[in-house]
Design a binder for these strands. Structure first.
Length: 469
RNA sequence: GCCCCGAUGGUGUAGUGGCCUAUCAUGCAGCCCUGUCGAGGCUGCGACCCGGGUUCAAAUCCCGGUCGGGGCGCCA
């Protein structure tokens, strides 16, 4: 539940439920108006108990037939679960529960003794997803009814954590001098060859949804903005169907001038360290909510400890050797696939960078230094990945700032430099060496919350077979 | 695109040819009790994905479809 200590009263309530729960003692005897969802309504006689929940807490409202208008009493008593109800009443200390001999008394709790109220909106029955039911609802049903799924405490906590991750990430980058930008999502050409784009009609011409802010954040840096970041959507028309891929996802991107791959790996590990540190200092109650649910599902708890710096660097050539010695079939020049990552992860279970991939495997905008060659002679690049366990979080690298090399790289991957003049022209008038990365926000959230599927931490995920709700 | 698996009340499930008028939980409706507190007790409601086939007999076996899950690929 969110901390609402600074929230102002609104037209519908004098206090948040959280304020009454927390403020308790000092509010006893005062009249408050609160509003929320009816979590349960118990009691069919002359008294009834209404458990009300808003985004900040839950509290019991106590209703007595004699204390209020009879028709309202009956309406609330027969209200369906999840109906929204506003009540006005006096804050009182709850009668203490009966405790077994020798058990300690729990701290006092407070309730609202209702004098009047309104049913704001009645909930239909049955609920397609029970909010407090002890059944393990399938992900597909949950996503079809996300508006209800979000009311579940642990789901709500996951999205609060998502917001915190974005907040702390932003905070950290700002302290390192990065400024936030917004790049266009409607584009005319591919940012990276090889990826399928969603085509669209832009008035009379053909356009695409952007698959990455890559080229535009570079142009911003070339234009002298020096250090930039963007948190925004990326769209990929790939027909994948896994727990970690979506066709629309939010990418956390940075780009910085006068930096190389090692410099931006430093930015990244410091940022992740900061996020983890802040969560572990400020938001463990949210993790606690997630863990409570995990326990009910027979899963172990997730822990949050700021990872040690620096993260291990396992250069591509070394990663290949680890896979080979772990029994994996792989050769220099092959991609490191998920089952290979499992082998590496058995030695490096946490965050680890894999720098210096073969140039032939990296996009055209990645920088390479002449003479940096792999164990078998191929040209290495200054591109890197960040993995956590078997999952890739990030891809990044130093960028090619020499326009003639850039154009050759384009030709090498079968692209026509003439289609990219909007980009290459940015390099013709003096270009600072620069580097950057893009991080999948949902994948980072999976690590933090222990979610087994990115869809859990994306509000309304878009995958191969889902465009609604 | 490939391989494997699955589809039973609103939700989550049991069920492997006749014992199914289909199990249990949760939910919903109602009643009783009650300053309750993950309340409790009682009664009731509600389902075999669609189409075809095999069989005396199909939730159960076969074929096709649709939808979903897992793994992979693609991708990062």
């Amino acid at each position: 539940m969110r901390d609402s200590s600074n929230w102002k009263p609104t037209s519908y309530r004098t206090h948040t439920i959280g304020q009454v729960v927390e403020g308790g003692e000092s509010l006893v005897g005062s009249e408050v108006t609160v509003a929320g969802y009816a979590e349960t309504v118990r009691g069919r006689g002359a008294i009834c108990f209404l458990m009300l929940r808003d985004g900040t807490g839950r509290i019991q409202a106590f209703l007595k037939k004699d204390n209020m208008e009879e028709s309202l009493f009956e309406a609330i008593q027969s209200a369906t679960r999840e109906s929204t109800i506003q009540v006005t009443g006096v804050v009182a200390k709850k009668r203490p529960p009966k405790v077994a001999e020798g058990e300690p008394m729990p701290p006092p709790e407070f309730e609202v003794s209702v004098g009047s109220g309104t049913i704001l909106a009645e909930a239909a029955t049955p609920l397609p997803v029970g909010i407090t039911d002890e059944v393990n609802v399938g992900l597909d049903v949950r996503l079809d009814n996300r508006h209800l799924d979000l009311r579940r405490t642990h789901v709500n906590a996951m999205f609060q954590l998502r917001s915190k991750v974005l907040q702390y990430g932003r905070e950290h980058l700002i302290t390192e001098g990065f400024q936030e930008i917004n790049s266009p999502k409607i584009i005319a050409a591919a940012a990276e060859g090889g990826t399928n784009l969603f085509p669209m009609k832009y008035f009379e011409t053909d356009a695409y949804l952007s698959q990455s802010p890559q080229l535009y954040k570079q142009l911003a840096v070339l234009g002298g903005l020096e250090r930039v970041f963007e948190i925004g959507p990326a769209f990929r028309a790939e027909k994948h169907d896994t727990y970690r891929h979506l066709n629309e996802f939010v990418s956390f991107d940075i780009e910085g001038a006068w930096m190389d791959d090692e410099d931006v790996m430093g930015v990244q590990e410091r940022m992740i360290h900061y996020i983890w540190k802040e969560i572990s200092h400020n938001d463990m109650s949210l993790i606690g909510v997630v863990n409570e649910y995990r326990e009910s599902q027979g899963k172990g708890p997730v822990t949050v400890e700021a990872p040690e710096l620096p993260f291990p660097r396992i250069p591509y050539c070394e990663a290949i050797e680890i896979v080979k010695s772990g029994g994996g079939e792989i050769q220099w020049g092959d991609d490191i696939e998920s089952h290979h990552c499992d082998i590496i992860a058995s030695q490096y279970p946490g965050f680890h960078f894999i720098p210096r991939w073969p140039m032939s495997m990296k996009p055209f905008y990645i920088h390479h230094k002449q003479g940096e060659e792999g164990s078998e002679g191929g040209q290495l690049s200054r591109g890197f990945d960040l993995n956590f366990g078997r999952d890739e979080m990030t891809s990044g690298g130093a960028r090619e700032h020499r326009v003639e090399v850039l154009e050759q790289n384009l030709r090498d991957v079968g692209l026509d430099p003439a289609d990219f003049t909007f980009y290459t022209d940015g390099f013709r008038y003096g270009a600072p060496p620069h580097a950057g990365w893009g991080l999948g926000v949902a994948r980072l959230l999976m690590v933090l919350t222990g979610a087994g599927n990115v869809r859990e931490v994306v509000l309304f995920p878009r995958d191969r077979s889902r465009v609604t709700p």
